Computed example of a mutant assay.
Amino acid sequence: MKHNKQMNAFEERFSEEIDHIIAVTGPSGVGAGKAGQESLWTASIPLIAWKEKDLIKTENIRLCWLTDEEGLREKQAQLHKESIMTLQVRKGEGEFMLVSLIDTDTQDEELQEILEEAKKPVFYHNDLLGTFELVKGLDLFE
């Protein structure tokens, strides 16, 4: 019963329409959390770009889903940071809901270029403090 209430509240945040996309995952892997008395994990992985009907969008958005412990471990083994995958999703405001994982090793030349660019190191130099490198998974300079 608890699962249903949590699932319904979660799914209400997304459109009913299911979209087929090819997506690039960001610099951090699958994360998850629970709030209060929730019985399911809210899991997510960041996306930095996706392609839908040959149109590419580059913006940071969360791919999320509800899952139990076993499902969380399964997705952590399947979904990797900095990779390209084919998915079925339902769109929400600033996030997508994972409906189906179709392929975790999709080949796409245009998205591969975006991924390669995203993997390049980013530096910030300050004359007084020195040079800092962006730790992309944490979004901070070290």
Rank of each mutant, 00 (worst) to 15 (best):
S100L: 10
E93P: 00
L79I: 05
P27N: 01
I22A: 10
T104L: 03
K81Y: 00
T86Q: 15
S44R: 11
F10H: 08
N4E: 13
L66I: 06
L115W: 07
G26R: 03
Q88F: 15
I61G: 01
D68C: 03
I61Y: 03
S100Q: 14
I48C: 13
H3T: 04
E12Y: 07
I48N: 05
I45F: 07
W65P: 10
K51Q: 12
E16T: 12
Q88S: 15
Q76P: 03
V135W: 11
G92Y: 02
V99C: 07
Q112D: 11
E52I: 04
T86L: 08
L140G: 03
I21E: 10
V89S: 02
K75S: 07
F132P: 00
V89W: 05
L115I: 02
V30L: 01
Q78H: 01
R73E: 14
T104R: 03
A9H: 08
E117Q: 14
E116K: 09
Q107K: 14
V24F: 10
N4G: 06
L55K: 11
H20W: 03
E59S: 12
L63A: 02
Q107L: 14
E93L: 12
L134W: 04
F123H: 01
E113I: 04
E113W: 08
A77C: 01
N8C: 10
T25N: 08
A49L: 13
V135F: 12
I48L: 13
T67W: 06
H3G: 04
K120Q: 06
D127K: 15
D103A: 09
P121Y: 14
Q112S: 14
W41E: 01
S44W: 09
E82G: 08
H3F: 10
G26C: 00
A49Q: 12
G130Y: 03
E59Y: 09
H3R: 11
G26D: 01
K75D: 01
K57V: 09
E133P: 01
F132A: 09
T67S: 12
N8W: 06
D139L: 09
A43T: 11
I18D: 14
K91W: 08
V30Y: 02
P121Q: 09
E17R: 15
G71H: 01
Q37S: 15
F141R: 07
G137A: 06
L138W: 15
L128H: 09
H3L: 06
G33T: 07
G137H: 10
L140N: 06
E12G: 00
F14S: 03
P121C: 12
E109P: 02
E95L: 09
G36K: 08
L87H: 10
T42E: 08
G36Y: 08
K51W: 07
I45K: 01
F141M: 07
F10P: 10
K5E: 12
I22S: 03
R90M: 15
K2L: 05
K75A: 00
Q107D: 15
L138C: 04
A23L: 06
G36F: 07
